[in-house]
Design a protein around this nucleic acid. Structure first.
Lengths: 247, 247
DNA sequence: CGAGAGGTTGACTTGCGTCAATGAACGTGG
DNA sequence: CCACGTTCATTGACGCAAGTCAACCTCTCG
């Protein structure tokens, strides 16, 4: 369905408007935690390039490897996979971005995007022009540093994901994925998850859709996982951990 | 042999002395390319913490995950694997560092080392105290930025390795590893490599030593690879590429 | 010379990919 | 409202790549 589009930069997200950055939780908490609201207002009032917020449907690319659009993205909700394509066309997930992560920061160094970023769930994200960051950097020297630190933090967390999700048997990977997804989509209750569709699950774990299906069937058979509705599932957390460590 | 040592920080490298940083190719070319020798002399003359150069034998750790030694390392020669350990004790290579790469920069953000760094070949590396970098940063604002850019570049190249080495069949991985090793150990001639020992090769490709042995035997049988001496091998570059793309 | 480490090779086993058939869910058009 | 096509999930049968286990070889070093 999208194999032929993979080398283009044409996906069209839905424009959600101009966000109120001065009161954005993500920006405020992480990048400007030392600044007052009025200072933030001054900062964002003086921008000469706008920050836009978009919604990306599942499967839609935020940006593509090799492209040179002058923007980075901060994820406000949802899950993004950063992939590269093998010579044979198969995709390989290199990194994952979740809520509050910033992606595409290689553009700050003038390098083209190093991966293709694809929404795995519906994603809302702010498109921040590189010029804005440069301007903020010039006016607030600590800004660049904090952004880099945040980036680095994301990279190191990404190592965890890769480590968990790409090691061990199919069953272990599925179990780890469920645990991980339940952490980041946390709805208060710790034993409920929103699972991805088969294709995305398979791509994330570097296995086939058939294997995904079989592994999930096995979990259901053992009463560790129970379907609730739509893509919502409920699971027995301790049994799942046990399951992951043994088989 | 080292399973019991993996959680300690005790490996003892060989001290090679105090390098002449003002004339170091790596530092000069990459971090201070806008500065004159005399300026560099001034910079490094005013340091209050010394930069030491060490030699690490194969298998020795430069630093270990979770430790908080206040130093980063710049690799002057050799190959370093950055690994993490799975619950079952098996190691997983997360990233690779080669000549001129800097590793352990997470210490600049106050985070503990995110990986264990182990020499895969004999490695010479400079231990740069974090304090030195902070001092240089304060005196030369562009320094931090350049260091981060270099770090980022390394990270993105690392994605390539991961992509090439951890995808496809055992034979393809071995072929890619040989090509990659021949590039970074480049001795002028483009068709000669220094291969790693079986254990390291296996760890890098996430396969078993037996598989490594069989794959190399296959390459020799096909006259694509020829043993020269010690760990030196000669190979037919075009035949190897062909081999990697078909089987 | 013997012990130990690392590499090689063979026989066996298995997890998982491949291929193919069937079923369930959904939208579209008559 | 039903018929049909399309897409995605499920299940079974089969084969193979690579892991496991074990024997043996080679080299080095004390």
């Amino acid at each position: 369905m999208n194999q032929k589009l993979q080398n283009l930069c044409v996906d069209r997200p839905t424009w959600l408007g101009r966000p109120d950055c001065a009161h954005c939780d993500v920006l405020h908490d992480v990048l400007f935690d030392g600044l007052s609201d009025s200072e933030l207002g001054t900062i964002f009032g003086g921008l000469y390039e706008p920050i836009d917020e978009f919604s990306f449907e599942e499967g839609v690319a935020l940006y593509r490897e090799g492209c040179e659009d002058n923007a980075v993205y901060t994820i406000r909700s949802g899950l993004v996979k950063l992939v590269r394509y093998l010579p044979d066309g198969r995709e390989r997930i290199i990194r994952l971005g979740k809520t509050a992560d910033s992606i595409g920061l290689e553009r700050l160094h003038g390098r083209p995007y190093g991966h293709t970023a694809i929404a795995v769930q519906r994603v809302t994200a702010c498109r921040i022009p590189v010029e804005v960051l440069k301007q903020l950097d010039a006016e607030h020297p600590s800004f660049y540093r904090k952004l880099m630190e945040r980036w680095a933090t994301g990279l190191f967390q990404a190592d965890d994901y890769i480590m968990m999700l790409l090691s061990g048997t199919v069953k272990q990977r599925i179990a780890h994925l469920i645990e991980w997804l339940s952490e980041i989509t946390d709805d208060g209750d710790g034993s409920t998850v929103v699972l991805l569709n088969g294709k995305n699950t398979a791509a994330m774990l570097d296995i086939t859709v058939e294997s995904v299906s079989r592994a999930l069937a096995d979990l259901k058979r053992r009463n560790i996982l129970r379907h609730v509705a739509g893509d919502r599932y409920q699971f027995d957390a301790s049994a799942l951990r046990e399951y992951a460590s043994t088989d």
